[in-house]
Design a protein around this nucleic acid. Structure first.
Lengths: 366, 366
DNA sequence: ACAGCGACTGGAAACGTTTACAGATATTGC
DNA sequence: GCAATATCTGTAAACGTTTCCAGTCGCTGT
C-alpha cells in the first residue's frame, strides 16, 4: 500500500493534493471531516490511502498550539507508589487522546524546577508533578508556569495551586488506632526523613494516634531514616536493642515495614504474635510480604487519577477561554503584574483507607 | 524577569529581534552559539533574558525533523519487570537529551501495532517495544516503520529486527540445576501461558534442566496458568493435592512464586525445609518475600539499557546517513521495492543470572 | 586611499499543517 | 433562463524556528 510519493520523504498533504489534483486546503478539509463535494472527497481519500499518508503531528502542534502530550514528573519510577500513579495517569490520558511523557527527577529540587520551567518549551500541554519537598521556589515556578500544573502533594496552605493531597496524618493515626485497638501498648515508629512533608505528617499522625489512646510518646520508640527496605531493617534492630519490650512497629511506608519484618524474622520473633507490623501506602509489597502486611492505602492510584482528570479539566477551561487580555478601555485595572485571572485553585484530598492483613491480626481460618 | 513581549503570547525570536534591533536570523545564530559580533551577541542575550525567552521545541522539531523524544511501549506498567526497563531507558534517554514517552498497550496486539504505525506521525524519533507475542504482523509493521525500532523480546529467527532478548531457556535451566544440585528430586513447575514466547521457553528450560540431571519429566508436576500471584497460589494448591511429595516448586516468575510460597505457608509447610521455591525475573518482590526468594534475573534492567543504547545508536546512524536515495545513474539496482539498505539488524542476548536466596537454601548464619 | 578579503548580517525560504478570505461553481426559486 | 443564494474550492498567511544565499561592513596590506 505504501507507494513512495512524488518527491522524497514521507507523503504530505502537498503530495496528496498533487496526486488528487486539488488544493492542499481541500485535502486538509476532507481529512478533517469538513464538508466537501462527493468526488473531491473520494479523490482525496483515494490519494491519501495510496500514499499511506499519516498527518505530521509536529506540524499540527505548531499550528494548533497544542501537543496532545501531558508530562508526569515524579522522584523515582522504582517506587511502587509512583508506579500506581503513572498507571492511572496513563490510562486517563490515553482515554482522552493524550500521550504521556515520563520524567524522573531523582528527587532533585533543581530537576523538578527545570521540569516546570520546561513547560515554556511547549513540549507538553500540562504537567502533573510530585515533588518530594515543596519549596517557595516550587510554588513560585508553578504559579508562573506557562501551562496548567497539578501538584500531587501538599503545598503550604497559602499557596494557590491545584493539588491532590494525601492525608497521611490521619492515615498514620488510623494505623496507630488499629494497633492500639488490637491490644498493643508499646508501639514503635520507623519514619522517613523528618524534613519532608510526608515525614512530618506521619510523625504528627503517630503522635495524635498515641494521644487518642492515652499512650505516651516515647522518643526511644522512634527512628527516622530513609524510605528503604535496608534502612527499615537497620532501624528495627536499633529499636529492638533499645526497647526489647516493644510489641508493635508502625512504619512510614511498606518498604520500611518489610525491612522491619525481616529483622523480626531474623531475630526469631513472630509476626504478629510477638510484634505486630504495619506499613503505609499499601503497595504490592504489602501483599507480597509474609505475613501479608497491614497497611494504610493513601490512595496513590486515586490521586493519580484525580490529578489527571483535574489537569484535563484545566486544559478544557484554557481552550474555552483563550488567555487574551483585551485592552478594551484604558488601564482601568491597575493590577498589571499579575497576568492571569486565577481560576480558583482546587485542593482535593484522598481519604486514607486501612487495609488489615495478617501482620497485625493473626489469621482466623488456616 | 518575565516582561510581557510586544504583542500577546509568549516571546519568540521575532520579539527578541525587534527589541534588540537585529534580524531573526541573528537571534537564532546567537542563541545557537554560532559566531556573531560582540555587540550583537550582547544585545540579543540581553533582550532574550529580559523577555524570558524559551525556544519553542515544536517549531524546532518541525524544522529539524527530530523531536528528541523516544517512545517505550510495554504491556503493563504495573509489572516490576517493565518498571525496571522503564527506569533504565529513562536514564539513558535523559542522559542523551531525549524525553521519554510511555505507552501502555495492555498486551493488546492491535494496540502494539498502532504504536508502531504511529511512528509515522513523527511524534517520536524512535521506539522501544516489548510485545507480549510477536506475530508476523508485528514483524511486518516494524520492518516498515518510519523510524528505528528496537524490540525487547524474541522475534522469530528469520525476522530482520533489532532486538534484545532474554535467555529464559537457560535461565529456567539454571534454576532447575540449582534445585537439583541442592538435593531436590521432585521439582514441580508453575508456568505462565504456553502460547507466549516466555511461556514456551521457560517450559523448554525446565525440561532441559531436568534431563541434564537425569530427572524425568512428569506432567503431573506441572501447571500452566496466568502470570499472577493468585494464579500461583491456586496452582500450588492443585499441585500439592496431586503430588503431596513434591520437594520443590519452580515458578516462571516471581509473582507465581510468591503465590506458591503463600500457599505453602497457609498449609503449614516450611520453605525451604519442606519445599524449596524459586522464581524468575528477580523483581523487588523476590527480596520482599519471606523467606527471600531465589530467583533468576533475566536482566530486565540490562535489557532496557541495551535497548535504549542500541536505539540511540540507530538514531545517530540515521542522522549521519540521511535516507536520500541518489538517483545518480539509471536504475542499475533493480530492487526498487525495498527502499532501505538495511543496516544489519542486531540481536543481543542478556545473560541470565541466578540469585540464590533463602527460599531454596536455609540461611547459615542467623 | 583602495582593492581584496573575511567576518558578520539580513532577507527569504522552508518544515507541514490549519484556516480566513475571496473567488468559483452548483443549486434553487421564479 | 436568470438572478439570488448556498456550497464548495483555491490562494495565501500563519505557527516559530533554522539555514541558504547575497549583501554589507570593517579590516588588512600595500
Amino acid at each position: 500500500m505504501v507507494t513512495s510519493g512524488t518527491g522524497s520523504g514521507p507523503p504530505t498533504i502537498v503530495s496528496i493534493a498533487e496526486r488528487a489534483g486539488v488544493s492542499i486546503a481541500s485535502v486538509s478539509r476532507v481529512l478533517n471531516g469538513l464538508s466537501a463535494r462527493r468526488d473531491t472527497e473520494e479523490k482525496v481519500r483515494k490519494a491519501a490511502a495510496e500514499l499511506g499518508y499519516v498527518p505530521n503531528s509536529v506540524a499540527r502542534s505548531l499550528k494548533g498550539g497544542r501537543t496532545r502530550q501531558l508530562t508526569f514528573a515524579m522522584p523515582d519510577i522504582g517506587n511502587p507508589v509512583y508506579v500506581a500513579m503513572v498507571r492511572e495517569i496513563q490510562a486517563v490520558a490515553k482515554a482522552a487522546g493524550y500521550r504521556l511523557l515520563l520524567h524522573s527527577t531523582d528527587a532533585v529540587t533543581e530537576d523538578e524546577l527545570a521540569v516546570v520551567r520546561s513547560l515554556a518549551e511547549r513540549t507538553s500541554d500540562g504537567l502533573i508533578i510530585c515533588p518530594i519537598r515543596i519549596t517557595p521556589q516550587h510554588v513560585e515556578a508553578i504559579a508562573h508556569a506557562t501551562a496548567p500544573v497539578v501538584v500531587i502533594g501538599s503545598p503550604p496552605p497559602d499557596a494557590a495551586l491545584d493539588c491532590v493531597q494525601a492525608d497521611s496524618v490521619s492515615g498514620a493515626q488510623k494505623a496507630v488506632w488499629h494497633l492500639a485497638d488490637t491490644g498493643r501498648r508499646r508501639i514503635a515508629f520507623i519514619n522517613g526523613p523528618l524534613d519532608t512533608v510526608p515525614g512530618r505528617n506521619r510523625d504528627e499522625g503517630y503522635r495524635k494516634g498515641l494521644a487518642d489512646h492515652g499512650l505516651g510518646y516515647d522518643p526511644e520508640l522512634t527512628a527516622a531514616t530513609d524510605f528503604a527496605v535496608t534502612a527499615g531493617a537497620a532501624a528495627a534492630h536499633e529499636l529492638l536493642d533499645r526497647r526489647p519490650d516493644l510489641d508493635a512497629i508502625f512504619c512510614a511506608n511498606d518498604q520500611l515495614a518489610l525491612g522491619a519484618a525481616q529483622t523480626l524474622h531474623a531475630r526469631g520473633m513472630r509476626v504478629p504474635e510477638d510484634v505486630a507490623v504495619a506499613g503505609m501506602d499499601d503497595t504490592l509489597l504489602a501483599r507480597a510480604a509474609w505475613p501479608p502486611l497491614t497497611s494504610v492505602d493513601l490512595g496513590s492510584a486515586e490521586r493519580g487519577r484525580i490529578a489527571a482528570e483535574l489537569l484535563l479539566e484545566r486544559l478544557r477551561e484554557a481552550a474555552e477561554a483563550p488567555a487574551e487580555r483585551t485592552n478594551s478601555t484604558s488601564s482601568t485595572s491597575s493590577t498589571d503584574d499579575t497576568d492571569v485571572p486565577p481560576p480558583a485553585p482546587r485542593r482535593t484530598t484522598a481519604e486514607p483507607r486501612l487495609v488489615v492483613r495478617e501482620s497485625t491480626v493473626p489469621a482466623r481460618s488456616v
